[in-house]
């Protein structure tokens, strides 16, 4: 069976200033993938996602997202970022956050009934519809993460890019999250960045190691965890 390629990176290099950060990365992501991306801290995992989203420009190489440039193709991506720049004191409810994924490029956006239904469905998929009117600051860590995953889902994407959605979560909540993601994976492709190899190898279909100058794609069934640790250097 030939798999349909949805995202493709060809010889992509990226540097912050003089410092080379990613070098000659080649990576293909396919439809229905549940791809785990792993690598040491500061190894370029987040940078890789931002390149795919067109938030950063590669120094050289080519990136195609659904056969288009990242800026055109990202319409079909649902993105969950690390919370670093989010102000948790911001006066906004869970429902409003999820609706933001529907604003898009329209300056004078009014929410339609479809927008509200999509947001409702995303909140229900994540099991947090009852929290819709809660203010962001009233939510627990795990609930916040669910809200932001719901936001990534609500624009009805074909692929989810999740940047460390499991960080700071208890083990049993992580298991529950992976369960939800596997359910979603029946319809959409998922790319998940994490640093916990054990959990990733349990749930992802494939794993890619990213460490600055090299990427390895491994089918996790083919290889034991120790060997993988060695290759991935984590």
């Amino acid at each position: 069976m030939v798999r349909e390629e949805i995202i493709r990176l060809e010889n992509v290099s990226f540097s912050y200033g003089q410092k080379e950060f990613l070098k000659d990365i080649n990576l293909s992501i396919y439809k229905d993938d549940f791809l785990g991306i792993i690598g040491p801290n500061g190894g370029g995992k987040t940078t890789l996602l931002k390149l795919v989203l067109g938030l950063l420009k590669p120094k050289k190489g080519k990136i195609r997202v659904f056969g288009k440039t990242p800026k055109e193709g990202r319409e079909s991506i649902g993105y969950f970022s690390q919370f670093k720049d989010i102000d948790f004191d911001f006066p906004i409810t869970a429902f409003e956050i999820v609706l933001l994924s529907r604003v898009g490029k329209k300056l004078f956006k009014r929410y339609t009934r479809q927008d509200k239904e999509a947001a409702e469905k995303a909140l229900k998929d994540l099991g947090i519809w009852h929290l819709r009117d809660n203010k962001l600051s009233e939510l627990s860590g795990g609930e916040k993460q669910r809200v932001f995953i719901a936001r990534a889902l609500a624009n009805e994407p074909e692929v989810l890019l999740l940047d460390e959605p499991m960080s700071n979560l208890d083990m049993h909540i992580q298991e529950e999250f992976y369960g939800i993601l596997r359910q979603l994976n029946k319809k959409i492709s998922i790319v998940l960045v994490d640093h916990d190899l054990e959990m990733l190898s349990k749930h992802a279909k494939e794993i890619v190691c990213v460490n600055k100058c090299n990427t390895h794609t491994i089918r996790y069934h083919d290889i034991d965890e120790l060997k993988m640790r060695e290759i991935c250097n984590v």
């Binding site: 989203l53 067109g54 938030l55 800026k71 990202r74 319409e75 991506i77 993105y79 970022s81 720049d85 989010i86 102000d87 911001f90 906004i92 409003e96 956050i97 609706l99 933001l100 994924s101 604003v103 898009g104 490029k105 329209k106 300056l107 004078f108 956006k109 009014r110 929410y111 936001r151 624009n155």
Partner: peptide, 26 residues
């Protein structure tokens, strides 16, 4: 008119950009 765009950009500028909102203009 721009209430939702303003909310999006003031809350999460980077995410708004991934949704192709003209963030600098807003």
């Amino acid at each position: 008119l721009m209430f939702n765009s303003f909310l999006s950009v003031t809350f999460d500028e980077e995410y708004s950009e991934t949704r192709n909102m003209p963030v600098t203009l807003v």
